[in-house]
Amino acid sequence: MTTPSRPIRTLRGLAEAVPAILLATMFLCFIIQVFMRYVMNSPVGWTVEICVIAWLWILLWGQSVSAEESDEIRFDIVYGSARPAVRRWFRVAFSVVLVGIYAWSLPALWDFVTFMKIQKTSYLDIRFNWVYSIALVFSVVSILRYAWIFWGALSGRDTGQSSIEDIGRKDFSE
């Protein structure tokens, strides 16, 4: 693989910083929560709200904007052992499925997310259209990512080798 150019690396670094910062925030909120209840005997509730919002954003951001193929959990018995030429067609097929379905449902998703401005979060009074807007980011970025995969597979530029060579070194957790 060629080394990505500097601006690309900077962008990637920024994209990855978002979930990292959110996780650090979540960690701090929990510490504050325990401290306020156990030590100060004056419990707070807003920490929970920050944590659930951070959790939502970590996953949807992390699996779209800052995702690399090796970060995604897939069933790789067949996919991993397929010949590159076959795998190329697998990639064409699944990216068509994903782009088609997510694109088709995008207007409905937009409708839902914008509708949710009707409710606000309990402690911080953030409107839910903002909380859930990450789903729109997720859907749009996923469509673009998989359109890119589709194009790469169709033009024969990418057979998906990079997505399988790292099997097992992914540090996801059960």
């Binding site: 970590i58 959990i73 957790s173 059960e174």
Partner: peptide, 14 residues
């Protein structure tokens, strides 16, 4: 933290 966030996203998305 960055690595943990990645793992979190992978499990969480499942």
């Amino acid at each position: 933290v960055r690595q943990s966030a990645k793992s979190t996203a992978a499990v969480g998305f499942l």
